[in-house]
Write a protein that binds this DNA or RNA. Structure first.
Length: 439
RNA sequence: GAGGCCGUGGUGUAAUGGCAACACUGCGGGUUGUGGACCCGCCUUUAGCAGUUCGAGUCUGCUCGGCCUCCCCA
């Protein structure tokens, strides 16, 4: 065991995984852009209250699981456990509620929860997130769901199912709570400790309980949907109709409620169905819903919102489990070698035009014998070796050797780029200019 | 946070309480000298700290870490 290791529940992404995650994020970001969602980034650290006030007292993520941050003994800050409240803070702080609505925002950041680590559950994990502010219409919910289902399909994830439910708006909430509290109170002595606590703090979450007897009790509870007002019902009907029109498979789950108290009306989750992940609970690869009271809760005006967040770590594992090719770290295309132990500067100089031409070029810095250098180049995954400092490669010549075909050719130094190009493709180079006009 | 299982070089494995072994990888050296070969050597060792014992990788306790269940959720 090494002396130092990554903190509990946090992990390092090595080149192959780091590359795969970057590609995954790029696919999601591009899709978000296609849906008109603009990227933002926000600090890893926020005022503790941003989460504590919005998530609800029954939420562990924004309660006992929060990572408190202190500076010189002063507290009040926390590592963000979820995205929505943080993005809402950004929205309000920068006066985006006075920009043309709706405001559609996308981000992909790391989240932190001080939970006990398990498979696919880390203390530091990555989430992609879409938030749409200022759109009360069911169409916004539908689009968010469509985005997510489409994303998973685009990536090749098929072992997944969509659950949808409505929990009503804030006007219905007192009626819902009253009815459910009255029902569950009759069984209070039979409920387990956690649910007795929820009876006081967050009745709806009793539906989340996994204790068998509690589930039986919950099965007899009044359906939330039957307690809602006309507008809630109409909204939900529109959502369902919309998803159907788009050909998205779904199921209504009467007991689906989410872990944060700010949700209103629409809630949904995309659940993994592969047996490898089908444990006692269900693992959600994405989930979200509407939060029409959140902006006001945070001190802003009454502005509705709807959004979705998904775990990148979960997504990555699910795709891998399903055999989707996630690629690996791009190895160097070209390795520069030399038989001359004293030509370090020449090797460096030789690599530059190749790099400018778009090849990934690594250099063997050593003075090892040439065969060792070749062996090393192969083990580093290079496809082509460019060799100088030998008998053949003299007077402005270099050898370009295809390491796969084991064929080589002596060429003028000036023609090296062209010759290498016959064996490996140039890689596209990112630029600063926004493609397709202003971004 | 609660309960359970587990932890041997970089990786994968072995070792009735009695000399920690093997394979692969990596590094150094050699043979060869434009490659995946062969030979020699090295990688400071049983996650850490205590304890029981003549003697601990093996037994006990604590700590750290991983996995599973509860909890919670991505």
């Amino acid at each position: 065991m090494p002396q130092y290791q990554a903190p509990r529940g946090m992990r390092d992404l090595l080149p192959a995984e780091a590359t795969a995650f970057a590609r995954l994020e790029a696919v999601i970001a591009a899709r978000a852009a296609r849906y008109g969602y603009l990227p933002i980034e926000s600090p890893t650290v926020e005022d503790r209250e941003v989460f504590a006030r919005t998530a609800g007292e029954a939420s562990d993520a924004a309660g006992k699981e929060m990572y408190d941050v202190s500076l010189h003994g002063e507290g009040g800050l926390a590592l963000r456990p979820e995205a929505t409240a943080a993005v809402t803070r950004v929205y309000l702080q920068h006066g985006m509620h006075r920009a043309p609505q709706p405001v559609r925002l996308y981000c992909a950041e790391r989240m932190y929860r001080g939970q006990r680590p398990q498979l696919l559950r880390y203390r530091e994990f990555r989430q992609w997130d879409l938030e749409c502010f200022g759109a009360p219409e069911a169409a916004a919910d539908i689009e968010i769901i469509a985005f997510t289902s489409g994303l998973l399909a685009e990536l090749g994830l098929v072992d997944v199912r969509l659950k949808v439910n409505t929990i009503g708006d804030e006007a219905s909430r007192p009626r819902v709570k009253e009815a459910l509290t009255a029902y569950f109170a009759k069984y209070e002595s039979e409920l387990d400790a956690a649910c007795r606590e929820r009876l006081r703090t967050s009745v709806l979450r009793i539906f989340d309980c996994k204790v068998e007897h509690d589930r039986e009790i919950a099965a007899g509870a009044p359906k939330v949907r039957d307690l809602l007002g006309e507008e809630d019902t109409a909204h939900f009907a529109s959502v369902l109709e919309g998803i159907e029109r788009l050909g998205i498979a779904y199921e209504v789950d009467d007991t689906l409620v989410r872990g944060f108290d700010y949700y209103t009306r629409t809630v949904f989750e995309h659940i993994l169905t592969d047996p490898a992940f089908a444990r006692a609970g269900e693992i959600a690869v994405a989930g979200g819903g509407r939060y029409d009271g959140l902006v006001r809760t945070m001190g802003g005006p009454q502005i509705p919102g709807t959004g979705v967040a998904g775990g990148l770590d979960v997504l990555y594992e699910a795709l891998k489990q399903q055999g989707v090719d996630l690629g690996g770290a791009p190895a160097a295309d070209v390795y520069v070698l030399s038989g001359d132990p004293a030509d370090a500067a020449d090797r460096l100089q030789l690599a530059e035009p190749l790099r400018d031409a778009g090849f990934n070029v690594a250099i063997d810095y050593s003075t090892r014998p040439l065969d060792r250098q070749l062996e090393s180049a192969v083990k580093h995954g290079a496809r082509v070796a460019v060799i100088r400092g030998t008998e053949e490669a003299r007077g402005g010549n270099v050898i370009v050797r295809d390491l796969t075909k084991k064929e080589q050719r002596v060429t003028r130094l000036a023609a090296a780029v062209t010759e290498v190009g016959r064996h490996v493709a140039r890689r596209p180079r990112p630029t600063l200019a926004a493609p397709g006009g202003e971004g």
